[in-house]
């Protein structure tokens, strides 16, 4: 029985044609892109997809993007940050318009995913740690947690340059106010909101230690951000006593 259930739990991967239904500014450097993907089997919270662009001369470029949405249905939401020297992201952020079509491969990934615990059970606490646009799959996880009304304690620590750079601010606030337990803490690396009073600057080991669920509570920890951010944070978590096997990481490159 459980074999059947687990097989059903991982939606089948395939190439699809996606139609852009809406694109809008998410932050000064990022766009939120809503897709209608005919035949999309739904996706788990935390999964990603690959986007393939083909130039008129046949040159192709493929990049992976995290999915901000989850669950059944053919609507898929991405949020893409523009990399200054990127080949694909400037097009997606600045040029893509409603009605355009994209080739997408997915849903992908079975490692960096979260499934709500079986009906009513309280799972191990979950700590989400995001650097910049690395918050996108964690938004999917936090929203899935909220939508499920899941009683598992959740915390999000979100490192971001300025308040204007926060992705899905309204959705995170709604999830925080919802019945599923979620605490959200920001680390501002360039400038903080007026009157917040907190320190401004890159996350430190001390700040991390103070903000995350302690190792004694044995949380499952999801860390997503630039490669440098993820590796710093994951190394500190292990120094702080977290079990390496309970730390799930996703690196999007960069510095």
């Amino acid at each position: 029985m459980s074999e059947v259930q687990q097989l059903q739990a991982a939606p089948r991967t395939a190439w699809h044609v996606a139609e852009v239904t809406e694109t809008r500014r998410e932050t000064p450097t990022a766009a939120r892109i809503s897709l209608d993907v005919v035949g999309w089997p739904g996706n788990l919270a935390g999964q990603h997809l690959d986007v393939r662009l083909t130039a008129p001369d046949g040159y192709t470029a493929t990049r992976s993007y995290s999915i901000a949405s989850s669950g059944d249905g053919e609507r898929v939401v991405l949020a893409v940050d523009r990399l200054p020297d990127g080949e694909v992201s400037p097009f997606l952020v600045d040029e893509l318009r409603a009605g355009d079509r994209l080739e997408v491969h997915g849903p992908l990934g079975a490692f960096f995913v979260w499934r709500p615990p079986a009906s009513g059970a309280v799972g191990r606490p979950v700590q989400l740690i995001a650097g910049g646009s690395g918050v996108v799959p964690l938004v999917a996880i936090a929203r899935a947690h909220a939508d499920a009304g899941d009683a598992t304690p959740f915390r999000l620590l979100y490192s971001v340059r300025t308040p204007d750079d926060v992705f899905f601010a309204a959705e995170l606030e709604a999830a925080r106010r919802g019945p599923a337990p979620l605490e959200v803490e920001f680390v501002y690396t360039r400038s903080a909101p007026d009157g917040s009073g907190g320190p401004v600057g890159r996350i430190t080991r001390e700040r991390l230690a103070a903000a995350v669920i302690g190792a004694d509570a044995a949380p499952i920890v999801y860390v997503c951000g630039s490669t440098g951010f993820v590796e710093r944070v994951a190394a500190w978590l292990i120094e702080l006593g977290h079990d390496q096997a309970a730390i799930r990481t996703e690196r999007y490159g960069g510095t």
Binding site: T13, D50, H105, T227, T249, R251, Y252, T255
Partner: peptide, 24 residues
């Protein structure tokens, strides 16, 4: 050279294997 991690292999390997091997 910058690096990523094995999550990125889910797409290319899904075209080779009948399952997602990134959790193997």
């Amino acid at each position: 050279m910058q690096h990523f991690d094995g999550n990125l292999l889910a797409g290319p390997l899904a075209e080779v294997f009948a399952f997602d091997p990134t959790t193997a």
